[in-house]
Computed example of a mutant assay.
Amino acid sequence: MGAAAFLMVEYVGISYVEVIKAALLPALISYIALIYIVHLEACKAGMTGLPRRHNPTLVQSLLSFTGTILGLCIISAVVYYGIGWTKDVFGDAATPIVGVALLLSYIGLLRISAKYANEGGIEIDAELNEVPDPGPTIKSGLHFLLPIVVLVWCLTVERFSPGLSAFWATVFMIFILITQRPLIALMAKTSNVAEELKAGFVDLAESLVSGARNMIGIGVATAAAGTVVGVVTLTGIGLVMTDFVEFISGGNIILMLLFTAVISLILGMGLPTTANYIVVSTLMAPVIVTLGAAHGLIIPLIAVHLFVFYFGILADDTPPVGLAAFAAAAIAKSDPIRTGIQASPTIFVPRFCRLCLSLTLSC
């Protein structure tokens, strides 16, 4: 969910950890189902990937997938339980202590990366013609996990706001982006340090330009979403929406959820994830809460927000808008509408499983 999860913290009034708990298991089931369906579609179409240096067995593939998921969980657990105690012991001095530890860890991980670069491993600008071995790839890029450590520390230990936590993680990522090239060149003794330092600043400039371009659409959409929210607040259209759904559903809870899902799907058309959540949570979440309470059904607010958000985000995958379908069609050089129609069953099945489990666990 990314940025939408941070907004959900503000809208629902719960902690970020509680949002993770509510969405984690449904999301895992959704992704497992999605990967399985995509695999079946790829097998049916005879699609193959890049050639591999070594063909892993099924057990190795499962272990690799499981290790990736567990790795992120372990990082979060290590940060919170492993070094979180330093905040209680050292107080305000814990932050600079952890900062020094991060810096030393960064230098140590760069030495590992430089070792693989010196031995002919994967370089930063290397062009891939085959799937590289996961071991050297992971070991040469372990230092990119440190911004995640900073983010988790700020969120769970320092209890910073999501925006401030993301800011410090971004600052550390910028530091890595600038310094990784010259430090690796210095350790591996493969190129000129000054040239690599210049290349690091070039990477930073290109990243800032790319980020600014990507934020233009999000900024405009978010501003438009703010206008919608203002209209809803000032005109009372939210009450009309509630009456409309109640009228066409006839008081039936299942029909109410169905019509709410369809309206959320329509409202989410053409909006990026963040603006999508703002719109559907403002317009449709109060509908479910109000009508559910009117019929004696108390639905947790987090379940309601996850419900409308799941269906609102489907607008990115389904025609006629389907921005994700257009992007996929551009890569596959296919028709966007047919791509969206083809993807619809693939998206609906795992998301429906995730939706049902989310509502069950939340209630």
Rank of each mutant, 00 (worst) to 15 (best):
L164R: 12
C154F: 02
P162A: 05
E158P: 03
V193G: 09
G211C: 12
V152S: 04
G163T: 07
M215Y: 02
A169D: 07
F172D: 05
I216P: 03
A221I: 04
V202C: 06
V231M: 15
N214E: 10
G219C: 08
W168T: 06
G219P: 04
I174P: 00
R159W: 10
A199P: 09
V152E: 01
T156L: 14
G230N: 10
G217Y: 11
S210I: 12
V229P: 06
E196W: 00
E158W: 02
L204T: 03
T222H: 04
S161F: 02
V193D: 12
M215F: 10
Q180V: 08
N192M: 05
V152D: 02
L164P: 03
L151T: 01
N192R: 07
R213F: 12
L155R: 01
L204E: 04
L197W: 13
E206D: 15
T222C: 12
K198G: 13
I176K: 01
A194P: 01
T156Y: 13
W168E: 06
I174V: 13
S191H: 12
V220F: 14
G219H: 06
E195A: 12
G211H: 04
N192V: 10
K189Y: 07
W153P: 00
K189D: 13
W153H: 05
A225K: 02
Q180H: 15
V193R: 13
F172P: 03
I218L: 10
I216V: 14
F160K: 12
T190Y: 08
T170Q: 09
S207P: 04
P182H: 00
F175D: 11
R213Q: 12
L204K: 08
A221D: 02
Q180G: 01
M215V: 06
A205D: 10
I174C: 07
L204S: 05
V220H: 03
G211T: 13
W168G: 06
V193S: 11
I176Y: 10
N214R: 11
G163R: 08
R213N: 13
E206Q: 15
T170S: 15
A225I: 06
G211D: 08
A221Q: 07
T227W: 14
G217W: 05
A223S: 05
C154I: 03
L186K: 14
F172L: 06
A188S: 15
V231I: 15
G219S: 10
V202D: 11
T190M: 11
T222M: 11
E158N: 04
A223D: 00
G200A: 05
M215S: 14
V209G: 00
A205V: 10
A223I: 05
W153G: 03
A199M: 13
F201T: 11
F175W: 12
S165N: 00
A212Q: 03
L164I: 12
R213P: 02
S165A: 15
L151D: 02
F160N: 10
M187P: 07
T227H: 12
D203S: 14
I178G: 01
G211Y: 09
I216K: 09
P162F: 00
W153R: 09
K198T: 15
A205E: 09
A225F: 00
E206W: 14
I176W: 07
A185Q: 05
A166K: 02
K198R: 15
N214P: 00
